[in-house]
Design a protein around this nucleic acid. Structure first.
Lengths: 206, 206
DNA sequence: GCTTGAATGAAACGAACGTTTGACTTAATC
DNA sequence: GATTAAGTCAAACGTTCGTTTCATTCAAGC
């Protein structure tokens, strides 16, 4: 394999280190050292550490969003009224797979986005993510006519929370490498079953 | 109110700042300034910044754990086989209330514990939390005989994830102060309904 | 061959960090 | 009144941080 260019190597190193140690816990020096690049390369190729983070996040989130959109489109092409289980599968599946792909690194990266209180984190996710989420929101709303918009938003946040935190803790307790693929496949089934039942719950009396 | 001692004021300031800006995003100087104390007071009263964090976390987590244990004990005193809904209420309720109490600060603090990759975070929660969680685990296992231990652990992580992330985002979008209590009470009902259905889901075929 | 512009390199910038020091204040004990 | 210990204070410690500067390398265009 021809050695990739410096820019890509910095992105790879940054994705790994940001996921392992968080944004503030990762120094530009650590990134460039792991990437085998010069310290000034981050400033040259990305402008600043914060802009490097947005580039890393975009590269990770984009394929997940694309898979979610493709799944929803395929679903809507087949039937105008997908079931709750089908929607959960289409929404949570790519989230789950995307997070497993990087050996739970992606999961921690998304946790970092969700939980980092820094102002920089506000611009980490692009508008594309919101667009996809709104489409799923509309589809879920049609499938769950009794659930109010506020409660539906609550439930969709729950999907992201369950997938992110689960992959996170799996990684934490099996320290050395990735979780076993068997466990990963089982967790995916668990998540879809768990979340389908949750999304289908009758809304509580006001 | 007689002004509390320096130690308590540092704990209060640290709880707020750790929740707002994360562990690494909070400097000892910012804490002591907000507390109206001297910079060296942290070293004197707690030893180090990391030990201050463990003191903050323990003060926050302990009442939640106590409420969870009390709720479970009351439940088991009434019936030897509580329902899934009762167990969810006893487990997630104190989590939810504890997180709402601090104006969603606690939620962010727990997110910090869950997601912070720093080595310091390993000792942030004490053994008491694990003990309570194991008792609930056993009670849930009796109420859900068809669910394997691995899947049950997955589902219990889901409860923590849903409560923590929800309170987190409520706080994020309503920037100025606390979420409206109406919204908080509604979200609590939403969470219990959502999670009861999720916990009661039939296990997927292997 | 010379020029141009992108890319990399070594070195330093000022700022902020956690921690430590040693003197000072305060209040209780003998 | 001297002694002791706890607590507070200003100041500095050495380190690490993100960023910038400027010289150098190198391949393509004329």
């Amino acid at each position: 394999m021809a050695t990739p260019d410096t820019r890509t190597q910095i992105l790879d190193a940054a994705e790994r280190l940001f996921a392992e140690h968080g944004y503030r816990g990762t120094s530009v020096r650590a990134i460039t050292t792991l990437a085998g690049a010069n310290l000034a390369a981050v400033g040259y190729h990305f402008g600043s550490k914060a802009e490097l983070m947005t580039a890393v996040v975009r590269r990770v989130v984009e394929p997940i969003n694309a898979a979610q959109r493709a799944g929803l489109d395929a679903l809507l092409a087949r039937t105008s009224r997908p079931s709750v289980g089908e929607l959960v599968e289409a929404f949570a599946g790519p989230l789950f797979d995307g997070m497993s792909a990087g050996g739970a690194r992606t999961s921690r990266l998304i946790m970092t986005i969700l939980s980092d209180p820094a102002e920089e984190a506000r611009g980490w996710t692009g508008p594309a993510e919101e667009a996809v989420r709104e489409e799923f929101f509309a589809a879920f709303a049609r499938a769950l006519p009794g659930v109010s918009p506020g409660e539906l938003a609550f439930r969709m946040r729950g999907i992201v929370a369950v997938t992110a935190v689960d992959r996170l803790e799996v990684h934490q307790q099996s320290v050395p490498g990735c979780a076993s693929p068997e466990q990963g496949a089982a967790a995916r089934r668990w998540a879809v079953a768990f979340l389908t039942a949750a999304m289908s719950a009758p809304p509580p009396p006001a």
